[in-house]
Amino acid sequence: MRIQLKNISKSFNKAANTIENMNLTIEDGEFIALLGPSGCGKSTTMLMIAGIYKPNSGELYFGDQLVNDLEPKDRSIGMVFQSYALYPHMTVLDNISFPLKQQKVSKEMRYERAKQAAEMVQLGHLLDRQPSQLSGGQQQRVALARAIVKQPKVLLLDEPLSNLDARLKIEMREEIARIHRELGITTILVTHDQEEAMTMADRIAVMKEGQIIQYSTPMELYNQPKDYFVAQFIGTPPMNFLKGTLNGNVLQLQNKSVVLDSTILNKVADQLEVRVGIRPYDLKQGNEGDLSFKGVVNLIEPIGHSKIVNVSIGQEQVRFFAEPTTLLQMGQEIELSAKISSIHLFNTETGESLKIESEEKELIYI
């Protein structure tokens, strides 16, 4: 099912709109994520797609059908909530089959389809148990099976992994991605966890204050952030930022000057204050890069395959990844460097990325 939001606005009072003139297209069979901090409007957007909220203005289409006034029960949607919302007195089988009972499907047929859905989420051996006898991950699988048993055209996932521990989150991410591949249902995930969005979605709509800031693939968001908000929101650990000044095509950073290729810079005013963004993976110990600066180690976090090292550079903090065998000590002065090709520049005042298109119309970042 192809879904389109055209100039959609939604407000709950006269003071301001929660969603303002949103435009979003989700292709048939696509898995997209609505990602952003609490209060950005992502759940409101999903509830409008579900039909629980009606937009104040704009048009919402399922395929070629305008559905602004279509009731939720008529939209062919399945929904999984943050709270599993299972019936405690019912067995797993009855919980999964309940939506079909509401649709007046015969008992034989609804149990057959419920068993198929349970097998798909690997719960076929637990059909006689009640929710209180299940783990959190198993309860979430029941909720997922209940959503897909109706054979919906659209699957809506509202913070479905928030109540799970780290290991179960990974398992359920894999499970949801597998089910999406098998069924090919248009799927929309609401989450504030960028790792969930990055690992599961085909495209991500990064939201802030009721607006979609950037709608791109996970790798485009990571490598080509449109602005400072997206850059600092995407990535674990987050991007490092250092204060700098851009004068024409000369970047001044940590009392050093570097001449940049002016052909990949948008025109900038003299003495423009900028944020210089560097991913932790792009910072290296030593002085072999185009940019180098010294700092003091203030925290070392071993994570098995590597170490995350926090370094103070004057009043600013950066992180980089070091090999697990690298010998570092707290308070040690080290030198870090980065290649010009790996850094990002953002206008401090507007947050916009300073980028320009190449002749091939690809975005190049400095």
Rank of each mutant, 00 (worst) to 15 (best):
R2Y: 08
I3T: 06
K6T: 10
N7V: 10
I8S: 04
S9P: 05
K14A: 14
A15N: 14
A16Q: 13
N17L: 12
A33F: 02
L34M: 09
G39Q: 04
K42R: 04
M46W: 02
I52E: 04
K54V: 10
K54W: 07
G58V: 05
Y61Q: 02
F62K: 01
F62A: 03
D69Q: 15
K73N: 14
Y84T: 04
T91H: 07
V92Y: 02
L100H: 05
E108K: 14
H125T: 10
R129L: 09
Q130V: 11
S135T: 07
S135L: 05
R141V: 00
A143Q: 04
Q151R: 15
L155I: 00
E159W: 05
L168D: 03
E175K: 08
T186N: 00
T187L: 00
V190P: 07
H192T: 09
D193R: 01
D193T: 07
M207R: 04
Q211F: 09
E220P: 01
K226A: 13
K226I: 10
D227M: 06
V230K: 02
T236S: 14
M239T: 04
K243G: 10
G248M: 05
G248E: 09
Q271T: 10
E273T: 11
R275G: 10
E288S: 15
L291E: 04
K294T: 13
V296W: 09
V297M: 09
I303N: 07
G304Y: 05
S306Y: 12
K307C: 12
I308P: 00
I308A: 01
S312Y: 10
Q315E: 15
Q317G: 10
V318L: 06
P324T: 11
P324R: 05
T326G: 06
L328Q: 08
Q329T: 15
Q329D: 14
E333Q: 13
E335C: 13
L336W: 03
L345Y: 00
F346M: 01
T348R: 14
E349S: 15
L354S: 04
E357K: 15
